[in-house]
Amino acid sequence: MPDSLPMQNNLVKNSKWKRWLKLLLRSKTGTVGLLIVLTIVFVAIFAPWLAPYEHSVIDPLNTHKPPFWMEGGDMANVLGTDNLGRDILSRIIYGSQVSLLVGISSVVLAGVIGVLVGLFAGYFGGFLDAFFMRLADSFLAIPNILLALVMLGVFGPGLMTLILVLGVTNWVQYARIIRGEVLSIKERDFVRAAKTIGVKNRNIIFSHLYPNVISSFIVVATLSVASTIILESSLSFLGLGIQPPQVSWGTILSDGRDYLATSWWLATFPGLAITIAVLGIIFLGDWLRDVMDPRSVK
C-alpha cells in the first residue's frame, strides 16, 4: 500500500449528541415528549417549592372541595381537596416524586437484567440459554403481582424494596424479546464477519448485537413504565407498597376510587397525571428509537 499520504486527523466525527439534538428539534413528538418528561422531572425535584401546601396536611372542615371552576371551588385549592381535606394539586406534585422514581428506576433495573440475560443467553445458547429461559418461564408462570406480594411480604414494604421487587419481577419480558432478536441477528453475516476477524465475544455482544436490539427494548420499556406506575399503586393499595404519609399517583388514585360517584376529581387528576407522564415517555421513547437507527437520518 502507498505510504506517502500525509497523516490526517479528525475526519472521523464524534458528534453524536449534536445529531441527536438536531433530530429532536425536527421531530414534533420527540420535542413534546422531552418537554413533558423534563417538566415532570422538574416538578418532582422542586416539589417542596412548587406545591402550595404540604401533601399530608388534613383539613377536616374543607373536605371534598371541587376544583376551582365548579361551584363551591376556589383558587385556594385549584384541583380541589380529598376526603380528608388535603389539597389534590399538592399531593399530585409530591406524588410525582415516588411515581417517577419507582416507574423509571424499576424499568431500568428490569431492563438491565433482562437485556443482559437476553444478550448472553441468545448469543451463547446451550446450557446458559436453557437455564435462563426455563427460569424466565417459571417467572411467567407466577402472576407478577403475586410474586411481588410474596417478596414484599418477605423483605418488608418500603420504597427501595418496591423498586427492587418490580425490577426483579419484570426482567422476563425484556429477556425474551432481546433473546429472540439476538437469535436472528447473530446469524447475520456481519456477526460472522466479526467472528472471522477474531473479535472477542464480549465485544461482539456489546458492539454488534446490543446496538441492533436496543430499539426493541426501548419500545417495550416505555410502554411498561405505565404499567409499573399502576402496579405500584396496586401494591400500595394492598398496603405493601409505599407507606403513608408518603404519596404517589397510584395511592392518590386508589384513595379516590371510593368517591368516584360523588367527588370524581379525587381519582381523575392523578389518573390524568399518569396518562400525561406515560404519553411523554412513550413519545420520547419513540423518538429515541428512531434516532438510534442511522437509516432515519438524512
Partner: peptide, 8 residues
C-alpha cells in the same frame, strides 16, 4: 447483511 447497519 455483512455490514452492521448501526456502524459507520
Amino acid at each position: 447483511s455483512s455490514l452492521n447497519p448501526r456502524k459507520r
